[in-house]
């Protein structure tokens, strides 16, 4: 760690800002009275921030921002189980998005779609382990479709932001 550059004040402020933004987006999503027959169908607005960070700041900062957001949101609104669900979704989706981005073959739209889907898969897998039931797999088809569609939308918005906002010049 010592070989690496220290976190600059600027970076610290940047991460803090993005974490706050991600938390606000999570909260906005939490406020939207959107109910569905299948639990787990959601937009994943906070992923806009994570995708932005992934492209503009790099994988490390994106991971830090994502995990800090999950931790803080859980402390404020969730319980221990919610932390498991959120973390497994976040870890899987972040890993997949990182790998896809690294190939350089996909735009933020593809990365977002994969991120949305894998977030849902991570949560379902975690729920299957926690609740010890394989019946939850019945939700998978719906969650795969909803995750893809929501992820495409998130990726489009993320792509626009990445193009328009250059942190070096802000």
């Amino acid at each position: 760690m010592k070989a690496k550059k220290k976190l600059t004040t600027r970076q610290l402020a940047e991460y803090g800002l993005l974490v706050a933004l991600a938390m606000v987006l999570s909260y906005v999503e939490y406020l939207i009275p959107f109910s569905s027959a299948v639990p787990g169908v959601k937009l994943g607005l906070a992923n806009i921030v994570v995708i932005f960070a992934l492209y503009r700041l790099g994988p490390g900062p994106a991971a830090v921002i994502s995990f800090v957001r999950v931790l803080l949101m859980t402390f404020m609104f969730g319980n221990a189980f919610a932390l498991f669900y959120s973390l497994s979704g976040a870890v899987l989706s972040l890993t997949v998005m990182l790998l896809l981005k690294k190939t350089g073959k996909f735009s933020p739209v593809g990365v977002g779609a994969a991120g949305g889907v894998t977030h849902n898969i991570g949560q379902i897998l975690c729920a299957m382990v926690v609740l010890e039931t394989e019946k939850l797999a019945y939700y998978l088809p719906v969650l795969l479709v909803s995750g893809t569609l929501a992820g495409i939308g998130i990726g489009i918005v993320g792509g626009i932001l990445i193009k328009r906002i250059d942190p070096e010049r802000v």
Binding site: F106, S107, G110, A114, A137, P141, V145
Partner: peptide, 27 residues
């Protein structure tokens, strides 16, 4: 961001196909 568009479509198609596949498997 223009070049990867085709790959995005492929990826999205694969994801949706996976959804259909899982559904068919369960069915």
């Amino acid at each position: 961001m223009k070049k990867p568009r085709r790959n995005d479509f492929l990826l999205i198609a694969v994801l949706l196909a996976a959804a259909v596949g899982v559904w068919a498997w369960l069915y």
